[in-house]
Design a binder for these strands. Structure first.
Lengths: 188, 188
DNA sequence: CGCCGAGTTGAACTGAATCAAGAAACGTGG
DNA sequence: CCACGTTTCTTGATTCAGTTCAACTCGGCG
């Protein structure tokens, strides 16, 4: 759990007693490549801290599949909207590779918020980070062309380009795999 | 300041002493219609609570102007990205009508976080709300046509349609005023 | 070896942008 | 209260980025 502790300590001071309290609220889980972690329509019960693996957030319907985010190791993952509001998730979380993670249940998360000061601080920090990510995505979708979005992804999040199949990258930047293929040919 | 207090009390219990402490951190300000509240490139120093008026978030360059959000009365407004990170704001905040607001400085906000429990809780609540708003916008931009986005805005945020000039609504849903005009003709 | 999913390529189509011009609404000063 | 200029909104014609449909290549794996 050292990575979680390090994450918390990056946010603010963490007392030994708070850490003991918090550490006991997490449990260890594993997922295989391709496995669904949270299903569309279900209420999210957990906040995950990814030790190893890659997670994809997406929505499927009969015709289209849209990818909203990827989560790599040493970061928190969850169907946040659903977790926060405790309403059914519009999104699905799936493991793109074998994944090991720590997770904390919604109930334990509330305990952490109620009983530790650092809980709310980390919660706020995490929400702020999520908000900033979504903002920059909104900006990209509103003001940049598909080609610009791809090039920025290339320079800003190279780990995505390296590890993720192109069809998911295409759906992440809001275009079809065909369009992405043509863009890649152009910029060669 | 009753509206701020009510806002806080909706989030969690608010002790009288915490409220006294917090209330003293805010100051009263006014803006005229058309006035810029936060300039692009400046670091945001304040979190505003809008008592009355309408705020628009936008980005201008030589050629295009893009609108990212509107904020109405009894809600918090700020160039959040900049406020949170204390880096120059990409966005500009402007008053679309005469506006009166309470505001808290970044320094006082940190004091509130450090010295009251409710501070972090409200901060987390606010970030979570911002995140959810941006998420639903990301979803709309990725999966819906311009026409669908307009219709959803019509039903979900009618106050926007009622009070905001069409050209800003167009830029908010990511199209030109011309395209919006054609959409409106179709659905009418 | 043959199958299957991922990626590429081509051709036709479409939603929205752009350019350009006109109509309607709005505010301001006389 | 009207006349004026300015801004907002609409309409038309053309262009373009990206979709859709369809066919083909490539690499991995039973």
């Amino acid at each position: 759990m050292g990575h979680i502790r390090a994450y918390y300590e990056r946010v603010t001071e963490l007392s030994e007693s708070d850490w003991q309290y918090i550490a006991a609220l997490f449990e260890y889980v594993k997922f295989s490549k391709g496995e669904t972690i949270t299903e569309q329509g279900n209420i999210e019960h957990f906040l995950y801290f990814i030790e190893q693996g890659i997670i994809r957030y997406y929505i499927c319907d009969e015709t289209v599949e849209t990818t909203f985010d990827f989560c790599f190791e040493k970061a928190f993952a969850s169907a946040y909207n659903s977790l926060i509001t405790q309403t059914p998730s519009e999104y699905r979380l799936g493991a793109l590779s074998n994944t090991v993670a720590w997770r904390i249940s919604y109930e334990n998360l509330q305990k952490m918020y109620d009983n530790t000061r650092i809980g709310n601080a980390v919660g706020r920090f995490l929400s702020e980070k999520l908000y900033i990510t979504k903002s920059s995505r909104e900006l990209a979708l509103l003001r940049f062309t598909a080609k610009e979005r791809y090039c920025r992804l290339l320079s800003e999040r190279p780990e995505i380009i390296k590890h993720i199949p192109l069809k998911y990258i295409a759906s992440y930047i809001g275009i079809t795999p065909q369009a992405l293929s043509r863009i890649r040919r152009e910029i060669c």
